[in-house]
Amino acid sequence: MSLLNVESLTVDYQTRAGRVRAVDVVSFVIEKGETVGLVGESGSGKSTLGHSIVRLIPPPGIVKNGKIWIEGKNILNITEEEMRSIRGSKVGYIFQDPTTSLNPVKNVGDHFIELIQQHQPKCSNEEALNQTRKIFQDVGILPERINDYPHQFSGGMRQRIMIGLATALNPDIVIADEPTTALDVIIQAKILDLLLELRQKHRMALILITHDLGIIFENCERIIVMYAGKFVEYANSIELHRRPLHPYTKGLLQTIPNIELADQKLESISGSPPDMLNLPNGCPFWPRCPKVMKVCKRKEPEITQVRKNHGVRCFLYGGK
């Protein structure tokens, strides 16, 4: 039984301007201890997918179809009370912006104590405090700061607090949604190191959601590329880097500056990101695709397994 099994998930946002299909029939499986990167840009659906796994899709988003199995239980069918016991203890979530995800009127220690006691109601204040001190040590926060408030911490420290909260109860899966976007590059490196260290220590699976290819390639064993709500390619990171198949993936790799290459010639991807309210017929990438064919404008390709563990959604490789 897999740790996480997402089966044909479809998530829509019903807005006044129309319906946006943020996640379009997505399926994937995560096993214990894996690091998987979900990469995509605006409108790709990666954040919505992440939110779906913890059932925190903001309104007006709703799950239209599909199942999400966590250790054999379809979490889309359980009560909110049951879901609350899964959030934090089975699946941890690190939000993008630590400033808005921490309660400004609660001190940092209380954030942890409340979390711990919610999942372990028999745990005394004393014990919860001890556990909190230990977590502080793990994430690199001075224990004297247990009574400080979120605003008294820097951005990097707040993200450490978020990581602490997400991993406090030793969940099996941690989802990190753009965990370092708001941070300076040197702190970013430290935060990612911390995340991976904790992951290794507690043997957690990590789903890293980001638009940053550098971070994805450095930290993930497996990568999934999303575009307009669908998976367009997935492979092991070395395979994806050496043999990218989808024109979008290739385009991305050629457009990202790599500081280790001398005199890099960057190529651009033409066009604009998809208008999710007005997707074209056929493959949503066709208006920007250098290899577009007639069939691309009429039909949407299916995923083709090109090699073991390497799939691509493109008529260039089958797709029927």
């Binding site: 590059v185 040197i186 490196a189 550098g214 971070i215 450095e218 990171s237 880097h241 790599n258 280790e260």
Partner: peptide, 14 residues
Amino acid sequence: KALISAIPVPDPES
């Protein structure tokens, strides 16, 4: 030196 070393490289083999 520290700044340059901290930049993520989009290459899993680097």
